[in-house]
């Protein structure tokens, strides 16, 4: 873990070499989700509510997802862009160092500009939390915290899983973005606005539902979800990491280097 921070410091120094680029990218990262959020706002402004969900409730959902995603993109960017490490053959270098490949890939890249996106989602989160019609208890705050934390774990797991695929395909797969970007877009809204099969997929295959939708219902005190155990459902999402790491291990064994 300390090594991970050492990697982070070094790459932060690298990033600071290009200050103007860093500032502009950060600003850009702040504005992209802002336009999406503005869309959300105007939609509710026009229609009032969405299948029984009011604006602040959806905004909370949106903020949690965006926050988890931006933190993941900042810290697990190495897995997101992993195929470039394979194509260039630089993965060889990682293999001749006496540390686990997972730590080294994590440390291979950080996307500090995601701070912009994180900043925006934090603002939306605070706005939603202060305006939403909820009596905040300790358990609800814990649930909210778990939502973000497990969201990070799930997005990271998906990054690892899609990175593993490039051991076989060499080039990265855009199809994987269905689950990362797609997952993000989906879970910005409460899951029950979708078709049943979509809901099932995002609950049992990729457990976004466990980390986002169910605890949200708990926080909002909806019928049938008042039991404190629902506050802890995000922890189930963490289990998703295990199969992803197993696939990663198989992939490393399967690795065939490129070039001379």
């Amino acid at each position: 873990m300390t090594l991970y921070f050492k990697y982070m410091m070094l790459l932060f120094k690298s990033q600071m070499q290009y200050r103007a680029s860093f500032l502009l990218l950060t600003l850009g990262q702040c504005l992209t989700p802002f336009t999406v959020f503005a869309g959300l706002y105007f939609m509710f402004d026009r229609f009032g509510q969405l299948q029984g969900w009011d604006f602040y409730e959806v905004a909370l959902c949106f903020a949690v997802t965006q926050m988890a995603f931006s933190i993941t993109e900042c810290f697990a960017r190495g897995f997101d862009t992993f195929s470039s490490l394979i194509v260039s053959g630089n993965f060889d270098r990682l293999l001749v160092r006496p540390r686990s490949t997972v730590v080294q890939v994590f440390g291979s890249r950080f996307e500090f500009t995601r701070i912009g996106r994180l900043f925006l989602s934090a603002v939306v989160l605070i706005w939603a939390v202060t305006n939403i019609n909820v009596d905040w208890t300790f358990l609800k705050i814990v649930a909210l915290f778990f939502m973000v934390a497990s969201g990070i774990v799930i997005f990271t797991s998906i990054f690892i899983l899609t990175a593993s695929i490039s051991f076989w395909t060499v080039q990265g797969l855009e199809i994987a973005n269905i689950f990362t970007d797609g997952g993000r877009e989906m879970t910005q809204y409460p899951l029950n606005i979708y078709q049943k099969w979509v809901r099932r997929f995002f609950t049992f295959v990729i457990p976004f539902g466990c980390v986002n939708y169910v605890p949200l219902l708990f926080i909002l005190n909806r019928d049938g979800y008042q039991h404190p155990v629902y506050a802890l459902t995000p922890l189930a999402g963490v289990l998703f990491l295990i199969p992803c790491l197993i696939v990663w291990r198989i992939g490393v064994r399967h690795y065939r280097s490129t070039g001379s």
């Binding site: 070094l10 690298s14 070499q17 290009y18 260039s88 053959g89 630089n90 060889d92 270098r93 001379s260």
Partner: peptide
């Protein structure tokens, strides 16, 4: 020889 192990920008 053809690949660096040093971090490029630091």
């Amino acid at each position: 020889g053809q690949r660096s192990q040093l971090w490029w920008d630091v």
